[in-house]
């Protein structure tokens, strides 16, 4: 399992460009209910939702700036700045807590020397809390980019981090 950490693909995001966003947006249907899909798409493309995107989306979906901002800010998953090459989300929900995720979180923060929503430049990891990854039977869970790690222990956590760091030196 731990070898897999070497295989976690790094995030590769486009640099924010309003013109590119406008071009990409044309492929979508402007029905209001597509707003969330479009937000996910842009976060996947640019790594975050740039503030400049909001008026563009508002016009496209025939909404106000306020409405689009309301939707984005409601969801913790949408970021307002570009994350590191790895986004590490550690579960804080009941099952994982019961299986020791609080302790893991403390260790993780200490190891990376950052708090939630911060980025460790040395390791190129952004740390985020998450509330349930839908894998409670294998708690505690964490996710790096789109790769899930389950039944994580202090030992395995260290190895995971090592794996990520080593990959960077590759």
């Amino acid at each position: 399992m731990l070898d897999i950490a070497h295989n976690v693909p790094k995030n590769h995001f486009e640099d924010w460009q309003l013109e590119l966003a406008a071009k990409l947006l044309k492929d979508f249907d402007s029905e209001e209910h597509n707003l969330l899909d479009v937000l996910h798409f842009f976060q996947g493309t640019f790594g975050y939702i740039d503030k400049e995107l909001i008026p563009l989306l508002a016009k496209f979906f025939n909404l106000s700036r306020a409405e689009v901002h309301g939707v984005i800010s409601f969801y913790h998953d949408f970021r307002d700045e570009k994350p590191a090459a790895y986004v590490l989300k550690i579960c804080q929900a009941e099952s994982c807590q019961a299986m020791g995720s609080n302790k893991l979180t403390t260790e993780l923060k200490a190891a990376l020397n950052i708090d939630f929503h911060e980025t460790s430049t040395a390791t190129d990891i952004t740390l985020e809390p998450v509330y349930c990854l839908g894998n409670c039977s294998c708690s505690p869970n964490l996710m790096i980019n789109s790769q899930m790690f389950s039944r994580v222990t202090s030992e395995s956590l260290t190895q995971i981090l090592q794996g990520l760091t080593e990959e960077q030196h590759d």
Binding site: A66, E67, S73
Partner: peptide
Amino acid sequence: TFALTISKR
């Protein structure tokens, strides 16, 4: 006008 929203949660 839809100028206002509830931000965050």
